[in-house]
């Protein structure tokens, strides 16, 4: 592809370079928007565009103020630390196990800063929804890949459908359903004063919704790994006296672990990136990072969002690198040359 054989005609050469240019333009289309936000997030002015100073590489036109804003926005008293010191201050107070009597600045940031709250919510919801999705999804994938499974096709279609059904439809349906009071006292006795067992506007509601949205990924990835799984290994284990639980944890699980992990990763990312269900089901105190970005874009557009976006891009680069390294490692372990 890269080097042309000597017998190519001029027309073919021209076409070859035209083709490469087209591809280069498409790659630019794919990657530029993601890269362009990083320099913009260091803007000293509250704009979404490059200022003249930034284009002239004037140091004063760049600043860290939007990153500082992530840490302090919403705090009761953000003035306790200022300037560059805030970073060291914050990290020191956040990470040091030695500081006695937690400084109120740290507690304030942890409790009140909007983005930090959103981050805590995102990780909390993401963790538990992934846990549910991976547990139920892995079990189901093992069942589904057994040849004896009855009504396999229909059940598989149903279990994959959260991936396909438009999020607005899913979220609207869950909104109705989760607004029902499930307290049996109110259902059967019609007691209007029964305490409310309502899932809407709770963490549990969002977690259940995200778990449902994440399971298809776990099923797809785990079923894919199970295709290459040699069932005689389980039988061999069982023939030597291991019970079903033991064969599962000692033989099957380690072998399908890559599928489980990548399914879990997909489930977590899905939850971490999901806005619509949060918009419909969560209250103001359950705002996640994407929810916070959504209202940021709609209401008070400020480069803080660009700073958050840059951090998220860095996170996804780290994630991508880790995945690539893991892939190479597993290929090396299987005796294949890393490609």
């Amino acid at each position: 592809m890269s080097s042309l054989p000597p017998y190519t005609t001029t027309g073919q050469r021209i076409w070859h370079y035209v083709f490469l240019t087209i591809c280069a333009l498409i790659f630019i289309f794919l990657i530029t928007p993601i890269l362009v936000i990083a320099p913009l997030s260091f803007n000293a002015e509250p704009y979404f565009s490059f200022t003249d100073g930034m284009l002239a590489f004037d140091g004063d036109a760049y600043s860290m103020r939007w990153y500082r804003d992530i840490l302090t926005n919403g705090m009761a008293d953000p003035t306790q630390a200022s300037g560059w010191g805030i970073f060291f201050d914050w990290f020191w107070k956040a990470l040091s196990p030695f500081h006695t009597a937690p400084p109120s600045f740290y507690t304030d940031a942890w409790e009140n800063a909007q983005w930090i709250r959103a981050m805590r919510n995102s990780f909390f919801i993401g963790f538990f929804s992934t846990l549910i999705a991976v547990t139920l999804g892995t079990l189901a994938a093992i069942g589904l890949s057994r040849s004896e499974m009855p009504a396999r096709g229909a059940i598989m279609s149903l279990l994959i459908s959260p991936l396909i059904v438009p999020l607005v439809v899913t979220a609207a349906g869950m909104f109705y359903f989760y607004s029902i009071n499930f307290n049996p006292d109110s259902w059967f006795n019609g007691n209007p004063d029964a305490s409310s067992w309502i899932l809407a506007q709770t963490y549990a509601g969002v977690i259940l919704a995200h778990a449902a949205l994440g399971t298809p990924f776990v099923i797809i990835t785990v079923t894919a790994t199970l295709v290459g799984f040699d069932k005689s290994l389980v039988r061999a284990g069982a023939s030597m006296g291991a019970g079903p639980a033991r064969t599962f944890w000692k033989i099957q699980m380690p072998l399908i672990l890559p599928g489980v992990v990548s399914g879990g990763l997909f489930a977590f990312i899905t939850s971490f990136d999901e806005v619509v269900a949060v918009l419909f089901l969560a209250g103001p105190e359950h705002r996640t990072i994407p929810r916070q970005m959504y209202s940021g874009i709609r209401e008070q557009i400020s480069p803080t969002i660009l700073a958050v976006a840059t951090i998220l891009v860095v996170l996804s680069i780290i994630l991508l690198t880790t995945l690539e390294l893991l892939r190479r490692r597993s290929e090396r372990l299987r005796g294949m040359s890393p490609s």
């Binding site: 993601i34 990136d273 970005m293 969002i305 976006a309 998220l312 891009v313 996804s316």
Partner: peptide, 10 residues
């Protein structure tokens, strides 16, 4: 792998 919101913002 990048967040939908990030790409929309971009």
């Amino acid at each position: 792998w990048t967040s939908l919101l990030v790409r929309t913002t971009a």
